[in-house]
Amino acid sequence: MSDTPVNEMSFETAMAELNEVVSKLERGDVALEDSIALYERGAKLKAHCEAKLKDAEEKVEKITVGPDGAATGTTKAEGV
Rank of each mutant, 00 (worst) to 15 (best):
D55A: 15
R27H: 09
A43Q: 07
E33H: 12
P5Q: 01
N7W: 02
T64W: 06
A14V: 03
K59E: 09
K59R: 10
L45H: 04
V65M: 04
L45Q: 03
S35M: 03
F11P: 10
D68L: 01
K24A: 15
N7E: 11
K46C: 09
E50H: 10
G79D: 09
V6R: 00
I63K: 02
M9F: 04
A70F: 14
V60Y: 07
G69L: 03
D29M: 02
T74Q: 12
P5E: 01
A56P: 04
G73H: 01
K59Q: 14
T74G: 14
G42W: 00
M15Q: 13
E12H: 05
E40R: 09
V65K: 06
R27A: 15
V80S: 15
L45I: 06
K52S: 04
V65D: 05
N7G: 15
H48F: 01
I63D: 01
R27Q: 14
L18A: 10
K52N: 08
V80K: 11
K24E: 08
K54V: 11
P67Y: 14
K52E: 04
A16H: 02
E12Q: 11
H48K: 03
C49M: 02
V30Q: 01
E40N: 13
F11W: 07
A16C: 11
V22F: 04
D68Q: 03
T74M: 08
E61I: 04
K46F: 10
I63A: 10
K54F: 03
N19V: 05
F11A: 11
Y39R: 12
A37Q: 08
G73F: 00
G79Y: 05
T75L: 02
A70R: 08
E57Y: 04
D3M: 07
T72N: 07
P67S: 11
G69V: 03
D68T: 05
E12A: 13
M9K: 02
A47K: 07
G28K: 00
A37G: 08
I36N: 08
Y39D: 14
E61D: 11
E58N: 10
C49T: 08
T4S: 12
E40S: 09
D68Y: 07
V80T: 15
T75Y: 00
D55K: 07
S23A: 13
N7A: 14
L53M: 14
G66P: 00
A77C: 03
G69H: 04
D55N: 11
K44F: 02
T13V: 11
K52G: 03
G28M: 01
G42N: 06
K52C: 06
M1Q: 10
Y39A: 15
K54C: 13
T4H: 07
E78C: 05
N19D: 12
E33W: 04
D68N: 09
P67R: 13
E57D: 15
S35V: 00
S23T: 15
G28N: 01
E33L: 11
L38M: 02
L32M: 15
K52T: 03
G42H: 01
K59G: 13
V6K: 02
C49A: 08
D29G: 15
E12M: 02
T75C: 05
T74K: 04
L38S: 06
S10V: 02
S23F: 03
K44L: 05
E26N: 14
D55Y: 04
E17V: 02
M15K: 11
M15R: 07
E26Y: 02
E57G: 11
K54P: 07
V6G: 09
V60D: 11
G66H: 09
E58Q: 07
V60S: 10
E8G: 07
